[in-house]
Design a protein around this nucleic acid. Structure first.
Lengths: 242, 242
DNA sequence: CGGGTCTTTGAAGATAGTCAATTTAGGTGG
DNA sequence: CCACCTAAATTGACTATCTTCAAAGACCCG
């Protein structure tokens, strides 16, 4: 492995366990090297630290190696809309491409590590590696599709359906990373869940209690067990959330 | 101009009045030619016609030359979320890139004309014209930012704020196309507005009546006059919608 | 000109929000 | 390691907003 200062190992996409979820999907060995050359020293963030803020100049995308992030838009009067939760293997910062300024904040919800991908370098190797370019566009498009599904959730669903969709979405994403999908720790507060789902924190709390009373889930603060994931799915399959 | 069958004039980006809003922003004459070569015969749609449907194979993006579209996601039980309204100069279909299948329907809300941009060809010339590639990514990113602002609207705003934001958004987009920005015809029904804003059609109707009674707007069915756009803006500036 | 769709408006009802009190957890420093 | 303190979560009671149900009126297209 390539050594760098402070005895840290240089991050290599080719070794990364997330390579099949992240940007380098489908690259050959030579292309891995090119992508590796672009990645800056990975950066560590403590819980609560900002990766970037709304208004910051956009220079890089960030691939999450470990940890958990939220993005949010803050409004003048202090209200705040969480626009997404991001976990390992996901790319964050694509909002900034449109006008070279970030339109949202990105905050670490636990101690995290990210790979920094300077966007101008990424554009350059995108010109050289069409499959990378294509995959990157796919990722942006997925973000659009994801956002549109959130619009469906916010526009059409009741509180219970929203929470069920939220839990099942987390479950699926954890599953595709090889984690237990029916038992996990929430990294965000009730208020952050509520903000994402267009609900107040009290409603989130009440709905969780209701699910627990119905035997659908087990709630121990941030520790969630999905007891009847199939039932939860039925609550939302009427509304087709991908 | 280049003639094609049926005596129709071949659409040329270089002549198009929308070139500064659409994909070719910032191209030089030679690059215009390359882009022109990629554009298929423009396609006309009658009001109500589908440009593409959810589940269709994705092959092309579409640039709107004239007319007005909505995109929507249909749910199993017949409910339907409008995810966007699109007017001339805007690009539609980017949802399909992620997995080569469209995730939403696109419907013409009035007789319309679109330029078809086969995506594989677009990728090819993107490799040759970095500024085009970059601009295309900017457009995708703008779509992400737009969707996140809709999330803010759906998650945080009251009915009056949502409608005010909707009207001002239309106003701004019409203005940047050189149309009157304080007087326009709505191309969509109250139900479609409601679906987009996460409200029922009755609520949209009531809120419009309320705005009219307050002297903010004049409503004559689909004909809207913004009498106090500044006041409308104040209703939403507290919530910072871009 | 007429059928059907879209829109408006009213009244009643449901869902989620607000306000408030209590409990519990987690972090900090002694 | 414990105690304290602050922040987060739960729960209840009440309220506001939006939805639902219903009926009447207006427009549009053939």
């Amino acid at each position: 492995m390539v050594k760098v200062k402070h005895n840290q190992l240089k991050i290599l996409c080719s070794n990364c366990s997330l390579r099949e979820l992240c940007l380098p999907v489908g690259l050959n060995p030579g292309e891995f090297d090119q992508l590796n050359a672009v990645i800056r020293q990975s950066r560590s963030l403590k819980k609560g630290e900002y990766l970037f803020c709304a208004g910051d100049e956009f220079t890089s995308l960030f691939a999450i190696r470990t940890g958990f992030f939220k993005t949010n838009i803050a409004s003048h009067d202090g209200r705040d809309q969480v626009t997404g939760f991001f976990m390992s293997g996901e790319l964050i910062g694509m909002d900034g491409i449109s006008n070279n300024i970030h339109s949202c904040n990105a905050v670490a919800l636990e101690d995290s590590e990210v790979c920094e991908l300077p966007f101008d370098r990424l554009e350059e190797i995108g010109q050289e590696i069409p499959s990378l370019q294509r995959h990157f566009m796919r990722l942006m498009s997925s973000e659009i599709v994801r956002d549109q599904n959130v619009m469906l959730l916010l526009g059409n669903m009741k509180a219970e359906e929203r929470l069920a969709a939220f839990l099942m979405n987390l479950s699926h994403r954890l599953h595709s990373r090889g984690f237990a999908s029916n038992e996990f720790i929430l990294r965000m507060s009730r208020e952050e869940i509520g903000s994402y789902l267009g609900l107040k924190l009290e409603t989130v709390s009440r709905t969780m209690s209701k699910f627990q009373q119905s035997g659908l889930i087990k709630v121990d603060h941030k520790h969630i067990v999905l007891l009847k994931p199939f039932e939860l799915n039925k609550m939302i399959s009427n509304n087709q959330v991908a």
